[in-house]
């Protein structure tokens, strides 16, 4: 049975149990997001997907669609808030796009472009975080972690390994590796794990790959991030 709601003036149909994010994506409407991934249970932490439902703010990745609801997403006001959140993520970690191998494939960078971010605006924290290069095949560069918990969910729910966890609270929250030594080499993590391939930024990296993909052929060279929803819709 097809039910609908209104998103930015457009009628969107949805199935029972679908979130606003899922229904919008299927309909080819992009809502910015970082901690949402279609393969995993939503986490609702980054708040980038915030929309207004009947005038009240809510995370569209966790909110179930209800027939007849009126949702605003692509408005100057909401986008300004998304921009501010994105800028905060940039200053909170060390995101040096010019020398980052994930540049062009990074969801944070692509989202910043999408939102028209010209500068980080806020003062940089410049946190001092060491990389973990102990694993033979995978490098962890914690400098770029945005705490989306996708690797935590992938390792726990898909790989059944629990390699990663978020530890600490509030501004002190950080990603840890579940090993006595805290080192990735001392876990049973492998390059085949789902968790090795879900990081939206440049933390969990296949070693020695670096800049193998030339400029022009990277994910977001070919299409902006906003086109990803359209691609999903077209596939259906």
């Amino acid at each position: 049975m097809s039910q609908t709601f209104i998103l930015d003036g457009k009628t969107i149909s949805f199935a029972d149990g679908q979130t606003i994010m899922q229904a919008a994506t299927q309909a080819g409407v992009f809502i910015p997001h970082l901690c949402y991934h279609p393969d995993f249970k939503p986490h609702g932490s980054c708040k980038l997907c915030t929309v207004k439902v009947n005038g009240r703010q809510t995370a569209s990745c966790t909110m179930r669609a209800i027939a007849g609801m009126v949702v605003e997403s692509d408005t100057p006001e909401i986008n300004a808030e998304r921009l501010a959140l994105t800028q905060m993520l940039f200053v909170e970690g060390n995101h040096f796009c010019p020398s980052c191998e994930q540049s062009g494939n990074c969801q944070l960078q692509a989202t910043a472009y999408h939102l028209g971010m010209m500068s980080p605006h806020f003062d940089h924290f410049f946190p001092n975080r060491a990389v973990d290069a102990s694993h033979p095949d995978v490098l962890l560069d914690f400098n770029r972690c945005i705490l989306c918990s996708l690797c935590v969910r992938a390792s726990r729910d898909v790989d059944g390994k629990n390699v990663f966890a978020l530890s600490g609270r509030g501004i002190k929250t950080h990603l840890i590796v579940n090993a006595k030594s805290g080192q990735l080499a001392d876990t049973n993590f492998t390059l085949d794990d789902k968790a090795a391939h879900v990081c939206p930024v440049g933390v969990i990296l296949k070693k020695r790959r670096g800049f193998a993909v030339p400029i022009g052929e990277r994910t977001y060279d070919k299409q902006p991030i906003s086109a990803t929803a359209k691609a999903v819709a077209e596939e259906r």
Binding site: S99, C100, E101, A130, A133, L139, G210, F211
Partner: peptide, 14 residues
Amino acid sequence: QGRPYWEVPVMVQR
């Protein structure tokens, strides 16, 4: 120092 080597050719351009 402490960075992975494959980053260096791009990083040093700065």
